[in-house]
């Protein structure tokens, strides 16, 4: 299995992994009176951070969101490092929202400082 959006994989040079991929569980928003973390609201998120992304890779992602700031996905295949008691596992989310990619600057043949956010992940 590999990272897929709506059943399609990114170009090879845009395949997330290593430094580019982050799976985020909702953080607690506070501690209860005994000091335990509470208030973790919502669903997991996935954030892709590319120091440099090729034009093809950029086009792949932008093509999904189109002109909208976000788009509901029909499926998202993502790596959950918290699954399987920390061993991690690929999971398929049937509900997710992909937000329009942002970048910091253009570079040779691509874009630098690209961030792509996937929220509302639900299996």
């Amino acid at each position: 299995m590999a990272f897929e959006i709506n059943g399609s994989s990114p170009p090879d040079d845009a395949e997330p992994g290593g430094y580019t991929y982050r799976y985020i569980l909702p953080p607690p928003t506070g501690l209860d009176g005994t000091g335990n973390a509470v208030g973790a609201v919502g669903t997991p998120e996935v954030e892709l951070s590319y120091q440099s992304l090729s034009a093809a890779g950029w086009a792949y992602f932008v093509n999904i969101t189109g002109g909208s700031p976000s788009v509901d996905l029909s499926s998202l295949e993502a790596w959950n490092p918290y699954a399987s008691s920390g061993a991690g596992a690929w999971e398929t989310y049937t509900t997710a929202v992909m937000h329009r990619p942002t970048y910091e600057r253009t570079g040779w043949g691509g874009y630098e400082g690209v961030r792509i956010r996937f929220t509302g992940l639900e299996a």
Binding site: T29, V41, T43, S70, H99, R100, R117, T119
Partner: peptide
């Protein structure tokens, strides 16, 4: 509700 405002993403929260 955790919506994006422009390109700024708002975290979903409940207080």
């Amino acid at each position: 509700l955790g919506k994006a405002t422009g390109d700024a993403h708002q975290r979903k929260s409940w207080d």
